[in-house]
Simulated assay, not measured.
Amino acid sequence: MRASRKVRVAILISGRGSNMASLVAAAQAPDYPAEIVLVAANRPDALGLATASGHGIATRALDHRAYPSREAFDAALQAELAVADIDLVCLAGFMRIFSAGFVEAWAGRMINIHPSLLPLFKGVHTHEQALAAGVRLHGCTVHYVVPELDAGPIIAQAAVPVRPGDDADALAARILVQEHRLYPQALALVASGQVRLEGARVVFSEGLTGAEGALLSL
């Protein structure tokens, strides 16, 4: 990623794009180290596309059902990212699994937010999983994307207490507030070079302690 200009970011969505909206809002600050230049969705009806267009951001809809294979979809997406001169990809509710080749091509340059404190509760229905497990803390994680689902090195996490009487909807709503805080902070760390991926490890720049780097919130 280039230090001479702001990092050019593409956000990939599949639905309403609430985390996308939080990244777009943060990037409007003059001193934010990244600019959102493209929002792409694998569903043409994704509501977040209209939100992005309203902010003057270029959008692309690539209906995954129109492609004969996962690799063909990934190749079409790669072409869009190349045309937009993208440095860094942010997944924000993007409900597609990439081919290993696509992930490897973006190693260290693609991040995701997941609604659990990884490595706990990978996949979907994380809030139901947390309640069934009886954990007292639940939260969200920003991590680098690797070929294995929800297994990439962790950049940042935020936690909330699980309260007596919580159901999945109540827990999800509280965690979403933390997601909207955490993701812009984590993207800023990556885009500014304060966090980077070295092999399978996340490395924080000098001056960031582990606790500060993790951005853990109770």
Rank of each mutant, 00 (worst) to 15 (best):
M1F: 11
R2N: 13
A3N: 09
S4A: 13
K6E: 04
I13Q: 08
S14D: 12
G15Y: 11
R16I: 04
S18A: 13
M20I: 11
A21D: 11
S22G: 12
L23A: 04
L23T: 08
A27G: 15
Q28H: 11
A29Y: 10
A29S: 14
E35K: 09
V37P: 13
L38A: 04
V39K: 00
A41T: 03
R43T: 14
P44H: 09
L47H: 12
L47C: 01
A50P: 05
A52Q: 09
S53Q: 14
H55K: 05
A58R: 15
L62Y: 01
R65A: 15
A75G: 13
A76G: 10
E80V: 09
V83F: 00
A84F: 03
A84P: 12
L91R: 01
A92Q: 03
M95Q: 10
R96S: 06
I97D: 02
F98I: 05
F98W: 03
S99D: 15
S99R: 09
G101V: 02
F102S: 03
V103N: 01
W106K: 00
N112Q: 05
I113M: 10
H114G: 09
S116W: 10
L118N: 04
P119V: 00
P119S: 06
K122N: 05
G123V: 14
G123H: 09
T126I: 07
T126P: 11
E128I: 07
E128P: 06
Q129R: 07
Q129T: 06
A133W: 12
G134S: 11
V135Q: 05
L137Q: 12
G139F: 02
C140S: 12
T141H: 02
V146L: 00
V146A: 00
P147Q: 01
E148M: 12
L149N: 07
G152T: 10
G165N: 10
D169N: 10
A170W: 01
L171C: 09
A173E: 15
I175P: 07
L176T: 09
H180F: 05
H180A: 01
Q185P: 06
Q185S: 13
A186W: 08
G193H: 13
E198S: 15
E198R: 14
A200S: 14
V203F: 02
V203Q: 10
L208A: 03
T209I: 02
G210W: 10
A211C: 08
G213S: 03
G213D: 03
G213M: 01
A214V: 09
L215G: 09
L216A: 14
S217C: 15
